[in-house]
């Protein structure tokens, strides 16, 4: 223990001795240039600290607001620029809106001759929505496609020869057959059946034709919001208003979109052909 203390005392004496000698010597110092460079950096660093703490750009302060606004603009822009999105959105919203049933009531009151009003369009859209639902419910689209075609063709054929009651019952049978074949959820199935029952009340060729057209449009994968009779009605209005140039352009469009109107067996062929003759003769 004493030895340890002696040892420590000896070392302390040595330490003091060397420290004195060390601090007697001239000690190196950094050059004035080096001092100035470091102090200048310290001054600029202090300025930077001050500036960065006080000034914050408007973008940094309102980052969330601007990013949210940009996102909304982006989504809105996508909907505006992409018409197919609008179409799908329109179809979906129509399917989900309960007021759709009223469109069926409107159909009942409409006459055979198509008028240039919104009701035929709504009518067609409603029929389409049923067709699209039927297709989407089907697990085997090609099979249901075939069945649907049968339904439509049979309905139209029977319509010419039989009474209204038989058409309706057959349509109902076929529709329910299609619905039962589709392995869709019960809720959706019930809705579609309800709509199908309402569809049974239709007794005119026009309605059957519209369903047929909508089926054809759906099968092509394109949900069209226009039909041949509506297009023809618009063409008639243009002719009546003596807008011949526009009518001619619209006729070309009809030719492309509804080539079946050029078929002599088509019910609207006569009317359409008459207008075409009028336009081409002028």
């Amino acid at each position: 223990m004493n030895q340890q203390q002696d040892h420590d005392a000896e070392f302390t004496a040595l330490q003091t001795e060397i420290k004195d000698a060390y601090h007697q010597q001239p000690l190196e110092q950094p050059s004035a240039e080096l001092d100035e460079a470091i102090l200048a950096k310290a001054r600029s660093g202090a300025n930077v600290t001050k500036v960065s703490s006080t000034k914050k750009s408007i973008w940094q302060r309102n980052a969330w607001v601007y990013s949210s606004a940009a996102s909304v603009l982006l989504v809105a822009g996508l909907f505006i620029l992409n018409p197919s999105l609008q179409k799908h959105l329109g179809t979906d919203s129509e399917q989900s809106v309960p007021a759709q049933q009223s469109s069926f009531k409107q159909v009942k009151s409409t006459s055979d001759v198509p008028k240039v009003t919104e009701s035929p369009v709504e009518d067609a859209t409603a029929a389409e929505s049923i067709a699209v639902q039927g297709l989407s419910m089907s697990s085997a689209p090609m099979n249901s496609e075939r069945v649907n075609r049968d339904v439509v063709s049979e309905a139209s054929d029977n319509n010419r020869s039989d009474s209204n009651g038989t058409i309706e019952s057959q349509m109902a049978d076929k529709s329910s057959a299609v619905m039962s074949a589709a392995p869709a959820p019960a809720k959706v199935n019930a809705e579609v059946q309800k709509k199908a029952l309402e569809l049974q009340s239709r007794s005119h060729d026009k309605e059957v034709q519209q369903v047929k057209q909508s089926f054809n449009g759906s099968l092509k994968g394109d949900i069209e919001l226009d039909t041949a009779d509506v297009a023809l009605a618009r063409l008639k209005v243009l002719m009546a208003d003596n807008k011949l140039i526009q009518a001619e352009r619209y006729m070309i469009t009809i030719d492309q979109r509804f080539p079946e109107l050029s078929d002599p067996s088509h019910p609207l062929y006569e009317q359409y052909h008459k207008i075409v003759l009028q336009l081409t003769s002028q």
Binding site: L27, E28, Q29, P30, D35, I38, L39, A42, R43, A46, T49, K50
Partner: peptide, 17 residues
């Protein structure tokens, strides 16, 4: 840190050697 450059100068003079 609060922006007083003189404080740094004092600190620097003390520790530079």
């Amino acid at each position: 840190q609060a922006g007083d450059v003189r404080a740094f100068e004092a600190l620097y003079l003390k520790h530079k050697g």
